[in-house]
Computed example of a mutant assay.
Amino acid sequence: MTTMTRRSSNPLSEMLTWLDTEAPVGLPGLGLLALVRMEDYVEDGTYVLRAELPGIDPDDDLDISVDGDVLTLSGERHEEQRDRNRHEMHYGSFSRSVRLPRHARAEDIAATYTAGVLEVRVPIDGPTEQPQKIAVRKTED
Rank of each mutant, 00 (worst) to 15 (best):
T112S: 08
L33H: 11
G92K: 07
R137L: 03
Q132F: 06
V48Y: 01
G55D: 11
L30I: 06
D125I: 02
L32W: 01
D63K: 15
S65N: 14
T72C: 12
T114I: 12
V66A: 04
L35W: 09
D67R: 15
V136Q: 11
K133V: 11
D141C: 00
G68K: 04
Q130E: 11
A135K: 06
E88S: 12
S74P: 09
E140M: 10
T114N: 12
D125K: 06
V66Q: 05
D63A: 15
G68H: 02
Y47F: 15
P101W: 02
R102N: 09
E88M: 06
G31N: 07
E22Y: 09
I64W: 03
T46W: 01
P123M: 10
K133Y: 03
E88G: 08
M89D: 14
V66R: 01
L71Y: 07
L27H: 04
S65V: 14
N85Q: 15
D83L: 13
L27D: 04
V117E: 08
V36I: 12
R121H: 02
L73W: 00
A51I: 07
L30D: 11
I109W: 00
D40I: 02
L62M: 07
M38Q: 11
K133A: 09
D44A: 15
R105H: 04
Y91S: 03
R99M: 08
K133T: 06
G75H: 04
S93Q: 07
R102F: 10
L32I: 07
